[in-house]
């Protein structure tokens, strides 16, 4: 039905839908602690597993996590990928330089925290490396206070 295509309007929405998400009680505690350059996890009263960032429910045990635990600033790189592109408003662009995104097992946590890894080249990064958290000088009570992880 070729003639149908000719009659198409090709419209573009001139707007974005904006949203305001509440972070909720658990992430609020986590962000408040970032301001003090601390990383908090939450512990399940039944299985004892600690998850970071903190979340209200342990789905496996059907229990509310009520205890917050301060985690070590150091951990092991258990997984990583190297990014070569960035995405902005649907546009795929070449990254200025390849960047490493890692999944880190911090001391005291049972799951992995995702974070940027810097101070090591994509060629030299290895799973098993020991990393430590690096903070912004002036923390503001934002996710960005925890800037990246780098080799110990």
């Amino acid at each position: 039905m070729e003639d149908i295509k000719e009659t198409f309007y090709h419209t573009v929405a001139p707007l974005d839908f904006g949203y305001n998400y509440r972070v909720g009680t658990y992430l609020q505690r986590y962000i408040d602690a970032l301001k003090d350059k601390k990383i908090l996890g939450a512990k399940c009263p039944q299985c004892g597993k600690v998850v970071v960032p903190p979340r209200k429910y342990c789905g496996a045990c059907n229990k509310v996590r009520e205890e917050y635990v301060e985690l070590s600033q150091e951990g092991t790189l258990e997984n990583y990928t190297v990014g070569h592109i960035t995405l902005e408003k649907g546009q795929v662009n070449q990254a200025e330089s390849p960047y490493i995104v890692g999944m880190i097992k911090l001391g005291g946590a049972d799951n992995l925290l995702v974070g940027k890894v810097a101070g090591v080249s994509p060629q030299e990064v290895k799973t098993g490396m020991r990393l430590k958290a690096v903070w912004k000088d002036q923390t503001e009570g934002e996710y960005s206070d925890l800037d990246h992880f780098e080799p110990v």
Binding site: Y21, R22, V23, G24, Y26, R55, K56, Y57
Partner: peptide
């Protein structure tokens, strides 16, 4: 407005 909880917490 539930100003204190996020979406999953409210549903729970």
């Amino acid at each position: 407005k539930r100003k204190e909880v996020n979406i999953p917490e409210m549903i729970s």
